[in-house]
Design a protein around this nucleic acid. Sequence first.
DNA 1: ATGAAAGCGCTAACAT
DNA 2: ATGTTAGCGCTTTCAT
Lengths: 338, 338
Amino acid sequence: MKASIGDVALKAGVSNATVSRTFAHPEQVSEATRIKVQAAADALNFSISRSAGILKSGRTYRVALLIGSHAIEWFTAEIIAGLNDVLRDAGYDLVIYPIEGAEARDAFFEELPVRNNADAVFVSSFGISPDEVKRLGTAKIPIVGVNTTSEGFDATVGIDDKEGIKLIVRHLAKLGHRNLLYLYESFSSTLGFSSYNRITGFQEACGTIDGMNARTLAVQKNDNIIDAAISEMMAQDNPPTALCFHQDSQAIPLFFRLQRSGLSIPLDISVTGFDDSAFAEEAQLTTVRQRPHDMAVAAARKALDLIEGRPVSKPFETFPVQLQVRGSTAKPRTTPLL
Amino acid sequence: MKASIGDVALKAGVSNATVSRTFAHPEQVSEATRIKVQAAADALNFSISRSAGILKSGRTYRVALLIGSHAIEWFTAEIIAGLNDVLRDAGYDLVIYPIEGAEARDAFFEELPVRNNADAVFVSSFGISPDEVKRLGTAKIPIVGVNTTSEGFDATVGIDDKEGIKLIVRHLAKLGHRNLLYLYESFSSTLGFSSYNRITGFQEACGTIDGMNARTLAVQKNDNIIDAAISEMMAQDNPPTALCFHQDSQAIPLFFRLQRSGLSIPLDISVTGFDDSAFAEEAQLTTVRQRPHDMAVAAARKALDLIEGRPVSKPFETFPVQLQVRGSTAKPRTTPLL
DNA sequence: ATGAAAGCGCTAACAT
DNA sequence: ATGTTAGCGCTTTCAT
């Protein structure tokens, strides 16, 4: 059977408290006793159970991460890795709650399973409503947002999406582009805060450039964004000279179509992404770099500060974005596509 | 302050036991009482704390996942998502332990933090040694392997890597290829079981084909596998007619180099991957499909069976692989590359 | 159907 | 430096 602290105490001929101290505060125990206890513990294959201490302390040593999808893609994977690295070391378990679809959503905010069962909640790129944030607030634990608004959150980390997309627009404008097309996948659910800002930021940034002609195109989820892009390129009137994709992963497949479509990047068309995620560098994709891993590390530290009641130095932190200029952008073509 | 079961009992004018029953076994409580208790609980924003029940039950309701790296890439992300989907619903928390480097490894297997603190352990694509498995076994909880050997595990899920790579080899052989090059990244640490089988499986499969000339090339981690591939292609003597990459993500960047290198897929060279992961389909990469999400779901179910003492129907399950024939493979070139 | 009470394994006063 | 003891919040017998 599993050995408990009492078994070890018995075997070592000391009290439960001494065994407990040997593990929690070894410096309070004499060398000789410590060795005796360690030996007994090893012989019984004993290790301290966290569950009991958790009950005693009133902390759950669990931290929840709310994500909007069951699938874990680049951004979420980076967030999970970053949070986990910090939280593991601090003795906290990261528990992932994927909340997809209206029913799951209602159920979650109705039951609020994190109440009494987590010491903090992270909300990552989740189009959460003010009502939901308020409801989450009744759990009385710190709420930390990742690429969310700051309304109702105790702390947030994120990038300035508008600033990021503005870097793209200005880069293209400086190269001479005056005809841009922005492409993104439209989801059935509400657009996340970050996505929304990126799209409206694009329009705003274009509005400040003289003679800029900019359009946005929402491609339905089960439609192919690359086919949509190529169709726009083949339009007879005034096809764009640059394609701005909402995120790198949507732009990458275009590079596989070059030969078959007869298009050339950047001679016929300039292409940009957003994220600087997998393969962006190899594809020479001009993009905006964000570092979700760094954001997650900072978010985890803020959460720990809030949990332990320490002051949080920068509760609402904006992380830098950086333009990565690569080979997929150049001056616009001077002759018509056809 | 946080309401506990006693507060609710007081407010509802019933005993603690009745409140507990209202949540755990509502059918044992009269309608009237149930409503009274629910009302009191709602008013106090109360929800049952899992920590106390956990202590009482002896279960931790935590399940550990051991992975070999802090970074979470395609395969691991799929595994996490699949495990979490099943375990969440069953009330278990999935806790991720990244174990990277020799020191972290020694520390983990020395301290064995999962002992007494998890109800099961998953080991995913982790080059774990027999000694380490044995040591893990002293924790007396089920050990489930994902793409590992079956030695010492209570259950495993995985694919037959040898079978998978054999499909690739035979496909290329049938097309007429007799000069293959296998490329993989060599890591400092021990090669995982799955990777090892894939590489040796390649050699074995080639050995059964008449006149097959096959080589393998280990590219150092911080060297560029695509540069290595192109260099081999440019060799004067007998360059390969097909490149077999260890995994899709290593093959993908080659598609971005086509124009600059003057190479054409599949006219000059056939290319294969392994995994059928992100962008494989868009790149028209011939590959072998594996479904880590499905494997994870099965692994989670087996773990639950083991935890609850139910018989496990198929403790050691091999999942199917399927060849995905796409445009990156064709008959070998008939004229020299140069 | 409901209540009283013991106890899960540990920690932290407090006492020695 | 070590032992004694109460109690964290809940579940579950056993009574009623």
